[in-house]
Nucleic acid binder design. Structure first.
Ligand code: MN
Ligand code: MN
Ligand code: ZN
Ligand code: ZN
Lengths: 153, 153
DNA sequence: CTCTAGTTGCAAGTGATTTGCATTTGCCTT
DNA sequence: AAGGCAAATGCAAATCACTTGCAACTAGAG
């Protein structure tokens, strides 16, 4: 039942994360390998504790310290992103996808991604006009689902 | 030496903050009065501890808990804003000025304000297009001063 | 001036994340 | 295959920025 040929997108992501760690000269331990594939598989923006839960399926005893330590290293290598949304612990995602910003539904906590080139361009212009260049930025829209006229509660 | 007529801008701001607290049904204590005028006078984005330091000029023993408690109340009344920039404790400012966003010089920590209607409009459009309305948002540009060609180090 | 509910300062508690340290463990070197 | 050792792990304790419990105060209505 083991596929030999098909390298899935997730495998590729896992490899990229692994490579980043090797490049940093760190060892690929069981716990790290588990965490890397959990990150590669994630479609959402999980917190450290949730990543630990998911990794425990493979490495039962993995500690939260190890999760945090590895996340910090991966962040330094630039292969994952750490987001600090309002009112929650930090959330993480791999940085494979191209840049995007986030909307957070204040009612449900759901995180929705979006990208807009005009906004990105405007930001750069503004900074430029004031004599600065952007190192990085953070744009978060805290939103509420809009009721269409005549919608039920 | 006491001016009777001239109500300065700062006096007006202090009054607005005071009114907000009274409206909330809370008492104007010595410590609160001090904090309110410190906030009204502030031209920058001070942290709670810095506000405490400034208030101590008037009320020597004012505790940090009281500062935090009052700041939280003022925030709930909508007369001050709490900003959570990366890597620092929360910073505060009165909300007299119209809406603006912030650039943070990653080298110096300096906070620079800016406002751009096109960005604001675009944000609203994006949310709208996805069926949401914006409750509030957060746009922070982490920047570095740009070296003009031929500038000294 | 009195009375009392709101407020204060202080100490202790929280929640997320980091760190110290003794014990394992990857993995390069024989 | 075995050895050696720096790096990594797990656990407990520490940190940081606030928040909260509580007994002693005090603003301010009557
Ligand atoms: Mn995302
Ligand atoms: Mn500002
Ligand atoms: Zn962006
Ligand atoms: Zn804005």
């Amino acid at each position: 039942m083991r596929e030999k040929k098909a390298m899935t997108q997730i495998d590729r992501r896992t490899e990229k994360l692994t490579t980043a760690l090797r490049r940093a000269g760190v060892r690929i331990t069981r716990q790290r390998a588990a965490l890397l594939s959990v990150l590669a598989e994630a479609e959402d923006h999980p917190e450290a504790i949730e990543l630990q839960r998911r990794a425990e399926a493979v490495v039962p005893g993995i500690s939260l310290s190890t999760v945090y330590r590895t996340l910090t290293e991966l962040e330094h290598q630039g292969v994952i992103l750490r987001h600090q949304f309002e009112g929650t612990p930090a959330r993480f995602e791999h940085s494979e996808a191209r840049h995007h910003d986030h909307m957070i539904d204040v009612e449900t906590g759901e995180v929705i991604e979006f990208a807009n080139d005009r906004i990105e361009a405007l930001q750069a212009e503004i900074a430029e006009a004031m004599g600065y260049e952007i190192v990085h930025h953070r744009l978060e829209l805290y939103v509420r689902r809009k009721r269409a006229p005549g919608d039920p509660d």
